[in-house]
Amino acid sequence: MSAFLAEVERRAFKQALFAVRDEDAALDIVQDAMLKLTEKYGAKPVAELPMLFQRILQNAIHDHFRRQKVRSTWTTLLSALGQKDDDEDYDPLETLPSKSESNWAADPAGAHEQTKIVALIEEALTRLPARQREAFLLRYWEELDVAETATAMGCSEGSVKTHCSRAVRALAEMLKAKGISL
């Protein structure tokens, strides 16, 4: 279980971040999903964990949006009343990138270009319709098969294929519009 969570936590965080576009909320979502997995499915075989975790994670993201919808009136009101000084909680250490196995920063010009492409891809992902993004990330990033993706998303296999196809086409078009060819 420990090894599985360590393996998926970064991608899970990114998935949540693409959906909610808020780091703290994304971290909360990942933590909730991890807690639910260990509490309810701790005894399940390791082979079943990826699909179960993705299902829980997607539900946690949907729950976040449901809660946000309920609270939207209050948050709008509170944010209008006082502008919070964002620099108060600023911690320069948190902005440091972690040590990574990748050595793509060896060439500064190339690294800059790569960072730019990553930023554009991530931005394009956040612009995708939620179901298309979910299908794309589950199918291609988490490498679930069509049936598993359908189960995790609670839809038919045909819908998964349609969502994936549209997502890839939309991403390619958005990147092409920014002058990036893959």
């Binding site: 965080f13 990114k14 250490l93 972690s98 990553v118 891809i121 991530e122 990033w141």
Partner: peptide, 14 residues
């Protein structure tokens, strides 16, 4: 590209 991005998460987030 997404894998590279996930590998470059901030230390605080990790």
């Amino acid at each position: 590209y997404l894998d590279r991005s996930a590998a470059e998460l901030k230390a605080g987030t990790l």
